[in-house]
Amino acid sequence: PQLHNTQPVEFNHAINYVNKIKNRFQNQPEIYKSFLEILHTYQKEQRNMKESQGNYTPKLTEQEVYAEVARLFKNQEDLLAEFGQFLPDA
């Protein structure tokens, strides 16, 4: 039951964060697009791992996701710090 109470918080946080990134990079849409691609790849790798029941090593670890996003968000430390709040094992 506690989990159900916390889900909207996480969802709202994610909405606000995506909105913040969109606004920050509205003149550099390629950065936002790259960010979406990183997330998409991460999700795909997580799904592969889940479906293989642990017999698949993800090509993109949490550390690599963080490193890629750090490169993308250089000089935007607030965005990177906030991203760290989402990432498991960051």
Binding site: E10, A14, I15, V18, F35, H40, Y42, F86, P88, D89
Partner: peptide
């Protein structure tokens, strides 16, 4: 603004599931 495209929604979905996973692992 909150003018979200389906791609944006997908990003929100991934981020919120990451956050849930993070919470679950703590």
């Amino acid at each position: 603004s909150f003018d979200f495209t389906p791609v944006d929604s997908a990003a929100v979905f991934v981020l919120s599931s990451m956050a849930r996973q993070r919470r679950a692992s703590q």
